[in-house]
Write a protein that binds this DNA or RNA. Structure first.
Lengths: 343, 343
DNA sequence: TATATTTGCTTAAACGTTTAAGCAAATATA
DNA sequence: TATATTTGCTTAAACGTTTAAGCAAATATA
């Protein structure tokens, strides 16, 4: 019961004894086609269950109406929400998105870029893998003249549009909050310095300490890949110090979760003995015990903005690629893990 | 610094003074092209940075080498892992995947199907939204002769390939485990009966009770949408019973998490007062306190199998669509929430 | 009424590939 | 040596659209 041949524009033309060109124009409501013909074409199209061949029109028009999205992974609330909002916004304008995951691997990311270019996407919206420092593949996208928009994990050197939160200020806010809670030895389990956003968080951390005249202790500042497992390791490392911290600010909720587990396994009271703050406001931070203080990154808004910027390029509003930053203000969500009630 | 015109097969042909057809064949290692010509073509292709136009070849060959994937959402470990494995398997064979999310909405799912058909995908791999009971959109895929493969959330009535775990047995296993732990009043917060997999879980629950001569109490069997919030509501409902259960088996980890929160808020000892079991083995089940007993669904294997079945269709090994079930054995992962240590 | 403009279509070419058919030259076979 | 087969290409058409150019008929304008 499957129909072997698809209905084409020619089939409709044959039925109505008009040219294929007229059918095409009628379907696109061209002003030079009479209302009568348009109605007839649409009626027959419906009857024959005509579905336009996207490949043919894409080939002819030189655009695929596909937008590629590259994320480190989809199974975090942040990325999933960004993607969902990009999709909604672009679907409305007739674009579809192709989602690819780099799994934080530079190599996979390069393959994803090739894949997307091969599929003739009209644009690429990406958040870079942690590993990525070599930007040549991204340069390739720019060289081809395909709009590139980065979010969250971006790079100034690429000189393309970027949407993200203010990492420096968010970090500063966290440290300020912990100091207000009475903490004096604040550790930071951060990401790798070569990643811009993590570097900014580290800078925010350092500057806030300075501001409040707290010493910067190198054994309290740790770089890491920020997985849950890494969070466990680095927390253990901090616990082995002769002079333990009284607060730990972790640059990712996933690593913060690992830290939380280690603290609990060691029967350390949170937040009184050691306060804990994460980053990202993943839903689980409100689910675990104690709930984890974190930073809301406005994932929905980031997705919408990224889509909007792409549409600007597609419609030719923004002519050339340049560094064009959209920075959103993040919000600190204080929860049990850092809410110290004094007597 | 962007190049306005892409290199085409004709450009290569012009350089070498041969026909475009010869270039095409050389690039595809056609046996009727001399080794010398092949080498020359590949050299020039590289020099001119030739990238094949996927749209043109897809149009000509009548296949897009794109496979559509529909999931209720990407931000669960299960779906994310299935997707990742589908992608890996299909990438190797030259296919790319387009991921779409239904957000558990029937309407969105229908739009996703239209979108994928419009994009001329060569096949669709899907897990149905909870809401979906009307199968007409899926029938549309079949009618077009496009391979359709369902996983996890499937439907026998569609008569297409299906890959999933044995829900009935998994459910049976859970109840048996709880009975072995000494539980006598086992509640089940299940999904909607109209969804096949949830119906199977309910049947497994009922049959296991029967087997061990435990009465089936209707107030202990609850249907729900299985979100975290719903888990909270249904757990509260169970706690209001005059005769409370001593174990609760929830058909999804997310809803089980909600139930866990309510139990803790009510200072009910887990597992001694009430034991808890989830379903799906989401990573957070091992992260919360207490850790939640759950069922491992072999997401990676499901993804691989789904891809394999699609490739079978694509290569013409499987000729026509019919009900072809691949059922994997699930594994019970016992954790603290149901591990009752007796004195 | 004569000319200009608008309306409503058609014709033809193009997007970049792939592939069936065919042909000449080279090589194999009898 | 004569014929058959193989090799290595070319030619031409096709996939299903879109669009520039053009033309005849209808309508507007002077």
């Amino acid at each position: 019961m499957t129909n072997k041949k698809r209905t084409t524009i020619k089939d409709i033309a044959n039925v109505l004894k008009i040219s294929a060109a007229a059918v095409s124009k009628a379907l696109h409501d061209d002003s030079r086609i009479s209302a009568k013909t348009k109605a007839a074409v649409k009626k027959v199209a419906k009857e024959l269950n005509y579905q336009p061949n996207h490949l043919a029109s894409a080939l002819r028009k030189g655009k695929s109406n596909l937008v590629g999205v590259i994320v480190p992974r989809t199974n975090s609330h942040f990325f999933s929400s960004v993607i969902q909002n990009i999709e909604e916004m672009l679907n409305r304008e007739g674009y579809n998105i192709i989602i690819t995951q780099s799994n934080e691997s530079f190599e996979k990311e390069c393959r994803n870029i090739d894949t997307l270019l091969f599929t003739q996407v009209d644009g690429i919206i990406a958040s870079m893998a942690n590993e990525t420092t070599d930007l040549s593949y991204y340069e390739k996208i720019k060289f081809k003249g395909i709009p590139l928009i980065l979010f969250d994990r971006g790079e100034n050197d690429l000189n393309v549009d970027y949407i993200g939160i203010d990492d420096y200020n968010s970090s500063y806010m966290i440290v300020e909050h912990l100091i207000n809670q009475g903490c004096q030895r604040i550790a930071h389990i951060g990401g790798y310095k070569h990643t811009r956003i993590f570097n900014n968080r580290i800078r925010g951390y350092i500057d806030a300490l300075k501001k409040y005249n707290l010493p910067l202790d190198n054994e309290l500042l740790i770089e890491s890949s920020l997985s849950t497992e890494e969070g466990r390791k680095k927390m253990n490392q901090l616990l082995r110090l002769k002079n333990r911290p009284d607060a730990v600010y972790v640059a990712s909720d996933y690593a913060a979760l690992g830290a939380l587990q280690v603290l609990q396994e060691n029967r350390i009271k949170i937040p009184n003995e050691i306060a804990l703050v994460g980053f990202g406001n993943e839903p689980f931070t409100a689910m675990v015990t104690p709930t984890i203080t974190s930073i809301e990154q406005h994932s929905a808004e980031i997705g919408k903005q990224a889509a909007k910027v792409f549409l600007g390029h597609a419609k030719g509003t923004f002519v050339k690629q340049k560094l064009n930053k959209t920075i959103l203000n993040a919000a600190l969500i204080v929860r049990d893990s850092s809410n110290i009630k004094r007597i």
